[in-house]
């Protein structure tokens, strides 16, 4: 069964052809980063316009690479939220047009659900699907930070989420304070490799009790601002490396330790990471290391499925197709859609 999937929730225009929910036949991604770089982040109006320009060529590219035509597709899937509203509209309109003209089902997919299903795509497939559930997913991106208890297909419980800044946002803001540029995640990751992660004792944000799986990254962001201010002169390159390394260490440890704690508390044997921040090399290494120590299975998607992509949407859509969970042609994009 072939699903054509479309993802335009933020600043990546992507289309993919996915076979039976696991095999990615094509997954071209056009990133707009260069257009947003000078603004230090995504500008919604620019993103929407670029999606309009890129959407048709990207869909054609996805079909060509998969060596199929519109006639071979069984369903069309699209991200309908959460995300930037202008960006979402472009993908949703394209998907509706294809569903209507080809007379095939339309499947609206939650972007967050897509990130979770990145773990089920075949190139990362380590365990039989029947034994997969339940698992915990640490979903970390520029706009989201949450721990989700995935009990079965389409069956999720959010155990914890951020109370202020998302982890990816903290990376972007710290990168800006250090004058590194945008996007901040990869730049800090690179710089941190050359710094001493124990040079500055930034505090781990602690939340206890009933909300122990919640996150807060506003405090460490402020701590970095205060630290930079406390330096007598402008930050030199050694100091930048040390700040990046010390900051990243605290963020990564906080994310992973909460995930591990939740797995133990809930007696869940498998943990996974997803979302753009899961491309961070230290997060990937530390999650694997801690899972091994605790004798848990760890699912860590390949890089290309961590950041926004349409293949993960096609993966999630397959199981919705099997449940006949279709969307009407009146499907509305929702900027603040919840899991």
């Amino acid at each position: 069964m072939l699903i054509l999937a479309i993802e335009t929730s933020c600043d990546e225009t992507s289309a993919a052809v996915v076979k039976d929910g696991v095999e990615v036949l094509s997954n071209p991604i056009a990133t707009q980063t260069e257009f947003h770089q000078k603004y230090g982040g995504i500008v919604p109006e620019i993103a929407a316009r670029k999606h309009v320009e890129l959407i048709s060529p990207i869909i054609q590219e996805a079909l060509d690479k998969a060596n199929i035509t519109f006639k071979d597709i069984d369903a069309v899937a699209v991200t309908y939220g959460p995300g930037l509203i202008g960006s979402l509209i472009v993908g949703v309109c394209a998907a509706k047009a294809i569903a209507w003209t080809q007379k095939i089902p339309l499947i609206g997919v939650n972007h967050l659900e897509g990130h979770i299903y990145a773990n089920l795509l075949i190139s990362n497939f380590q365990f039989p699907i029947s034994n997969l559930f339940p698992f915990l997913c640490l979903l970390v991106s520029g706009g989201h930070t949450m721990i989700v208890h995935v009990k079965g297909h389409g069956n999720y419980e959010t155990l914890g989420r951020t109370r202020d800044d998302a982890a990816g946002e903290a990376f972007d803001k710290v990168a800006r304070v250090l004058g590194l540029g945008y996007p901040g995640g990869p730049l800090i990751d690179k710089l941190a490799k050359e710094g001493n992660p124990n040079s500055i004792p930034f505090k781990h944000p602690m939340i206890e009790g009933e909300y122990a799986y919640d996150f807060s990254f506003s405090g460490i962001k402020t701590a970095v601002v205060n630290h930079v201010k406390s330096l007598q002169s402008t930050v030199n390159s050694v100091q930048k490396k040390n700040i990046a390394a010390s900051f990243q260490k605290v963020v990564v440890e906080t994310l992973v330790e909460k995930l591990i704690k939740a797995a133990k508390d809930k007696n869940v044997q498998t943990v996974s990471i997803a979302g753009g921040v899961s491309a961070n090399s230290e997060l990937r290494e530390y999650a694997q290391k801690r899972a091994d120590e605790e004798k848990l299975k760890a699912m860590i998607p390949p890089f290309e499925y961590c950041t926004d992509n349409a293949a993960m949407i096609g993966g999630a859509a397959y199981y919705k197709f099997k449940r006949k969970d279709f969307s009407p042609l009146s499907l509305k994009p929702l900027a603040s859609l919840r899991l």
Binding site: G142, D164, A166, A335
Partner: peptide, 13 residues
């Protein structure tokens, strides 16, 4: 609801 930073998405309702 939790009020979180809208930096990324620019407007939260």
């Amino acid at each position: 609801d939790y009020v979180i930073s809208p930096t990324f998405i620019l407007i939260n309702e």
